[in-house]
């Protein structure tokens, strides 16, 4: 059986909020290493991969592999019943029909309990190869969100160009064009504001801004975001979560026909 207790319901609430626009139904794969999720969006252009390691929970118990097929709209409805600061416990039997969520207030004696019916989800599972990326950019997640939002006002697509000069986000639309260039930057007062660019060869790729702006819903999970790029492979957008856990988005590049 599964029993996984999170100190703050907020973490799961934010993860689900971040992916619910991309994915409707997905399996939460539970085993002794933690809870993992991998799902493609309907158009198969983007892929979400989440890992909540067992260390992120206290305690965490899962004796065997359990797949919880959950409709994210239903999960969102139930998670709205939890206060951000509540302690959240997920429970399921070995061959479950439902997943049980318990929310406890640390400050009062309130205890809420909900069951969500599970679904059988036959999901295509993609083996994501370990990739040595040509360029990695680590930057404030709020900055990436702002750039994405600003350029989305002008265009559907953004070109991300990474050279030794820096990283340039640029777009062209009906009303005109725009670009934002970032260079490596170290902020002595606040390292969350640092921009670090690790480049082994120049990269230039084009992506859908609509998808990137969806990924940016995860900005509340981490002050930093890491973008990893190589020519002609999907972009990796990664938000680090506590205890070495992560939320990753992969986005196929737009390629000239």
């Amino acid at each position: 059986m599964l029993e996984a207790r999170l100190e703050q319901a907020n973490l799961l609430k934010k993860v689900v909020d971040s992916i619910t626009n991309l994915v409707q139904d997905c399996n939460f794969d539970c085993n002794d290493s933690g809870i993992a999720l991998q799902a493609m969006d309907n158009s198969h252009v983007a892929l979400v991969a989440m890992m909540l390691r067992s260390d992120a929970f206290s305690p965490f118990r899962c004796d065997r592999n359990i797949a919880l097929g959950i409709n994210l709209t239903s999960l969102t409805k139930v998670l709205r019943c939890a206060q951000n600061e509540d302690i959240l416990t997920l429970k399921a039997e070995d061959a479950p029909d439902v997943v049980n969520l318990v929310f406890e207030s640390a400050e009062s004696d309130r205890l809420s309990e909900y069951d969500i019916k599970l679904m059988d989800i036959d999901q295509e599972h993609l083996g994501i190869p370990d990739t040595e990326y040509a360029a990695s950019i680590t930057m404030p997640s709020a900055e990436f969100q702002r750039i994405t939002r600003d350029l989305l006002a002008l265009s559907e697509s953004v070109s991300i160009e990474c050279t030794k000069e820096g990283v340039k986000f640029s777009c062209q639309g009906d009303i005109g064009s725009g670009s934002v260039t970032l260079r490596s930057h170290t902020n002595v007062d606040n390292e969350d504001r640092n921009v670090s660019i690790d480049l082994s060869e120049p990269v230039s790729l084009m992506f859908s801004l609509k998808y990137l702006s969806n990924f940016c819903k995860a900005s509340g999970l981490s002050s930093r975001v890491k973008l990893s790029l190589s020519n002609e492979v999907p972009l990796l957008v990664e938000y680090a979560l506590p205890s070495n856990s992560f939320l990753r988005f992969y986005l196929a590049p737009k390629i000239g026909d």
Binding site: I128, P129, S157, V233, P234, Y250, G256
Partner: peptide, 14 residues
């Protein structure tokens, strides 16, 4: 013309 490539073209089926 630019088209959006589907992601599974890049990743092997596991």
């Amino acid at each position: 013309k630019i088209f959006q490539t589907q992601i599974f073209k890049f990743f092997l089926n596991g």
